[in-house]
């Protein structure tokens, strides 16, 4: 089935995150809240109830002092391609077509006005990338003033998640269109808020299929891996780490089993 209109250039946006570079500062998280009108409450410590489109997890190698190592793993929505291309786990289960795979970009969308809150997608997502609005958002005093008009505020009863800042893609596309180059969007013209915010340069974003883009090269790094790769969700988010224990944490390895990037060394 032809899913991409013939006049649209196919892209496949994705991310490569250097875990060895990430400091765990959470600038990406905060930039994302601000960019995407993510609401907050006075109690946020129950993380299953807290709205975060990108979460930065702390990983520890478990060795005792002073051989301990710590890494931070930023995790947005993986924008999975699915086992069958175009069928991410969350999309397949949505009865309302509220979440969909966008063929021209590879971005998994979330349409709040369609979502009626059954939360099947949350159950289907192996990455906990989705969160449910259990409450109506409140912006106390006049905090409402800082909301961006580019992203709609959500209501109680809908699921939300990372969109790869899709509105930024739309703005870049509009601009390109107005400038008479409808299909030419430069690598730096469309960058997500978290990528841009990362003060360590740990996140790289771009078209995974475009050999000119940085991510194209990085995803082929010897130490690149994806989370729960063996579930065949085909995430569009890659990670790089030279630490074997980090690779081990990214999937369910059996004892003694060696992550792919290190298999050669140990053979």
């Amino acid at each position: 089935m032809q899913k991409i209109p013939s006049h649209t250039k196919a892209r496949h946006f994705g991310m490569v995150i250097d875990v060895d570079k990430c400091t765990g500062c959470a600038s990406c998280m905060v930039a994302c809240y601000s960019e995407n009108n993510v609401s907050f409450r006075d109690e946020e410590s129950a993380k299953m109830l807290s709205l975060n489109w990108i979460m930065v997890y702390k990983l520890t190698n478990g060795e005792s002092f002073p051989d301990t190592e710590v890494c931070y793993l930023p995790q947005p929505c993986m924008h999975c391609d699915g086992k069958e291309f175009g069928k991410p786990p969350c999309v397949s289960v949505c009865p309302a077509v509220a979440t969909d795979f966008d063929w021209p970009t590879g971005i998994v969308s979330q349409i709040y006005t369609r979502c009626f809150g059954c939360r099947y997608c949350m159950a289907a997502c192996p990455y906990h990338a989705r969160q449910f609005n259990w409450w109506d958002p409140v912006w106390p005093a006049d905090m409402e003033k800082y909301l961006s008009p580019n992203v709609s505020a959500r209501t109680r009863g809908v699921v939300e998640k990372c969109s790869f800042c899709y509105h930024r893609f739309q703005l870049a596309r509009q601009k390109a269109y107005h400038e008479g180059r409808p299909e030419e969007i430069g690598e730096d013209e469309y960058q997500t808020a978290c990528t841009q915010a990362c003060p360590s340069g740990a996140i790289t974003f771009g078209d995974l299929d475009n050999p000119e883009h940085e991510v194209y090269k990085l995803k082929q790094d010897r130490y690149a891996f994806r989370l729960l790769e063996r579930l065949n969700t085909n995430p569009s988010v890659y990670y790089i780490s030279k630490r074997k224990w980090v690779h081990r944490m990214a999937d369910n390895y059996l004892e003694g089993e060696v992550p792919a990037a290190f298999a050669e060394n140990e053979a």
């Binding site: 809240y33 006075d42 946020e44 410590s45 993380k47 930065v56």
Partner: peptide, 13 residues
Amino acid sequence: PFMTKTIDSKTLK
């Protein structure tokens, strides 16, 4: 509040 939202639940719960 935004920063408090980033604090993990092994630091503040």
